[in-house]
Amino acid sequence: MKICVLVKQVPGPDSPLLISDDKKWIQEEEIDYAMNESDSYALEEALQIKERLGEGEVVAASLGPDRVQKTIREALAKGADRGIHVKDDYPSTDSYVIAGQFALALKEENFDLILSGLQSDDTGMGQTGLMLGEFLGMSTSTLVMETDISEGKLRVKKELEAGWFQWVSMDLPACITIQSGLNTPRYPSLRGIMGAKKKEIKVMESTPQGELLQSLEKIYVPKKTKLTEMIEGDTDQVVAKLVDVLKRDIKVL
C-alpha cells in the first residue's frame, strides 16, 4: 500500500499574527510555524494503517518555500518513509491552485491512498484534499473518524453533524480527509529523529501556479459587532463584579 499524507506548515496556535503592510497576509518573519493540527492526525492514521497492514510506504508531502522541509522532517522523524517537497516560494491561498500543483507533482507516484487533515488552521477552507482527489480521479471522503482496510477495500467512519456517524465503503485509490481527535499522534523517538536525517526528501522545483479562481483582497482584525463590557481589577475584584453581573444583569443568581 502506497500512502501519501499532505502536511501543511501553518502558524502555530500561539504564534503572533501581525498583519503585513500590504494587508494581504501576516508578517512571515514573526511566525512560529508548526504542522497543521489535523494533518498531524492524518499522519498518525497513515502510520497506523501501514503498521496494521504490516507493509507499505508512507510519503509526507508539503508545498511551500524551503522552510516547509522542517515539517516534512518532523513527519519523517515520526515514521514516514520519505518526503516530497513541492517547492513554491510564494504559495497561493487558493485551494484550487494548491491542489492542482499537488496533482501535477504526485500523479506519477500512483498512490493508493492520500490522507490530509480536514482543514488548515490558517485559511481553513477544507478544500485542498478533496480537490486533489477530484484532480486524480480518486474516490473521496471527508471528516473521517476511523479507517479499516481489507482486501483492497477501504471502509471509513465519517462524522456527520450533531453527533451522527456513517460508515462508507470506498474503492481504492482513495483520497480522504481526517478529523482531529481520531487517534493520539505519536512523539518522534530519538532514533526517529536521528533516522529522519538520512531519509530522502524529493524537491519538485517551482511548480507553476496557473490561474487563480479566487483572490484575497485584504485581511484585517475582525470588526466588533458586539459591545463587550470588560470587567477589570485583581482576581478578587473581578470575581466580586462578575457575581454582581450574574445577580443583577443576567439574573441567574
Binding site: P11, L17, I19, I26, D121, D122, T123, G124, Q214, S215, L216, E217, K218, I219, Y220, V221, P222, K223
Partner: peptide, 10 residues
C-alpha cells in the same frame, strides 16, 4: 482566517 482571529475580503 486563522480560526476567527482575522477576517478577509475575497
Amino acid at each position: 482566517l486563522f480560526q476567527g482571529k482575522i477576517t478577509s475580503d475575497i
